[in-house]
Design a protein around this nucleic acid. Structure first.
Length: 419
RNA sequence: GUGGGCAUAGCUCAGUUGGUUAGAGUAUCAGGUUGUGGCCCUGAGGGUCGUGGGUUCAAAUCCCACUGCCCACCCCA
């Protein structure tokens, strides 16, 4: 039997309600902040991600779904959305139509990693990007949007972490300081951390190895060495979050794994989703637009993992899903009435009722059981003696009451059901 | 890429030191009087015990390989 590809999952009908709730909250919150939805293709030229995300990152180095198409072009299934949004922003000169573009998206993403709890190879993210302003108000706004969405889903076990990476010049200075600090104890670091020491020293902070963290305990912190502008912007973000009653902690060791980040970065983690705890991550990327061939334009954004969020919702039991029900189930007492039932159902459906009936010519008992299973609010019997005297029998399933209605007066049925 | 765990009905799982036609619950279907649900009762269908090899008179059970899934590391959402 052919099965779904490793790391991909079918979302079956019973799981659909929670996805719908999540999507509608995302849509509503972003719309409230006047963000406009954007959709981009599922794949792009490979070089977009290589240049946008950074050649040295794990995503580009070992996780992309890259293939050569029939015209020998290297294509890649999008592993994240920011590079695509910026590409679209540049391609359509969105910055020239208006100085600030506030955009949001909901989309599948692809990364070829080993699956585990909260991690799939095809997964879904929603996110927002504000391109065209360096104002820290937007940094704060996006954090608030992300936090609002998670709160509206009823999540409680959340931590907002923020940090500032500064501008590239101050970051380079800091990297030197860190290198000096770690130089003497490099041989004591774990193998992975020694690799990071050479490739991207900031990521040594990501290490979960205790002895590494021990070595880092008294290291200089980036937050103390960032440039004045970044420091000032970071202060504004903190003030807004405080005034907005968003609990946050400054995590000077929060280093994000994508190369394009500058200044403010943030992450929201949950204690309820296993070891992959980051529900949401983002930050400012003031150089990316230019780097991808556009005019110098500052931007800020975040992405959130929808599977992880829904996992957290389940583990916190935070969603109250409405009971699924239908309005009417039509039951035929005589098999010959199939086409009459079908016609009737069309009339009801035109009046926005959710209607179903038996297509399998089953017994009345079976039809009733089906109606009950579907949580049908009403059942309409057609056939038998009533039919001979041109009547239908409408039953209210919660009270058990039944009443006769003229055969041709289906408006009366609609009236009763809609009441 | 590395490590650990698991693989028996659609689903959740039993299956005792290898020993008759592999079980339960649930779901599905049919029935419990002629045309009426939920609860309850009866019955039916449904499994090449992940795949391939080996040991044995005999394998779901022991051994090997492969595959898949889960969890963790790396890293990220």
């Amino acid at each position: 039997m052919i099965k779904a590809i490793t790391g991909t999952k079918d979302i079956l009908p019973p799981e659909m309600p929670k996805w719908k709730i999540l999507e509608s909250i995302v849509n509503d919150v972003f719309t409230g902040f006047n963000y406009k939805e954007i959709r981009t293709p599922i794949f792009e030229e490979t070089s977009l991600f290589a240049r946008g995300i950074g050649e040295e990152t794990d995503i580009v180095g070992k996780e992309m779904y890259t293939f050569i198409d029939r015209s020998q072009t290297s294509l890649t299934l999008k592993p994240e959305m920011t590079a695509s949004v910026v590409r679209a922003f540049n391609e359509h000169s969105l910055g020239k139509q208006q100085p600030l573009n506030k955009l949001f998206y909901i989309s599948p993403m692809f990364r070829q990693e080993r699956p585990q709890a909260g991690r799939q190879r095809q997964f879904h993210q929603f996110g927002g990007e504000a391109i065209g302003s360096a104002s820290p108000l937007l940094d704060a706004e996006l954090i608030i949007i992300a936090y609002d969405i998670l709160k509206l889903l009823g999540l409680k076990d959340l931590t907002v972490k923020i940090n500032s990476l500064g501008i590239p010049a101050s970051r380079e200075n800091y990297k030197k300081l860190l290198k000096d600090y770690l130089k003497d104890s490099k041989h004591l670091l774990s193998e992975d951390s020694r690799k990071r020491f050479d490739q991207n020293i900031l990521r040594v902070f990501d290490s979960k190895v205790e002895s590494d963290q021990e070595i880092l305990k008294n290291s200089p912190l980036m937050i103390d060495y960032i440039d004045d502008e970044s420091k000032n912007d970071f202060g504004v973000v903190k003030t807004i979050l405080t005034n907005s009653k968003i609990p946050f902690e400054v995590d000077a060791k929060l280093v994000r794994g994508l190369d394009y980040y500058t200044k403010t970065t943030f992450e929201i983690v949950s204690g309820k989703v296993g070891s992959q705890s980051a529900l949401c991550g983002g930050g400012r990327y003031d150089l990316l637009v230019e780097q991808l061939g556009g005019a110098p334009t500052p931007g800020v954004g975040f992405a959130a993992g929808m599977e992880r969020i829904l996992l957290a919702c389940e583990n916190e039991n935070s969603l109250n899903l409405p009971k699924e029900e239908i309005d009417l189930y039509i039951i035929k007492l005589d098999k010959e009435l199939s086409s009459k039932v079908f016609e009737l159902s069309l009339s009801f459906r035109k009046n926005n009722l959710i209607v179903d009936f038996d297509y399998l010519d089953r017994s009345v008992k079976a039809q009733m059981r089906e109606a009950n299973k579907l949580n049908s609010r009403f059942v309409l019997f057609i056939g038998g003696d009533e039919y001979k005297s041109e009547k239908l029998n409408l039953k209210n399933m919660s009270t058990g009451e039944q009443q006769l209605i003229e055969l041709n007066d289906y408006h009366r049925v609609i009236e009763i059901i809609k009441k």
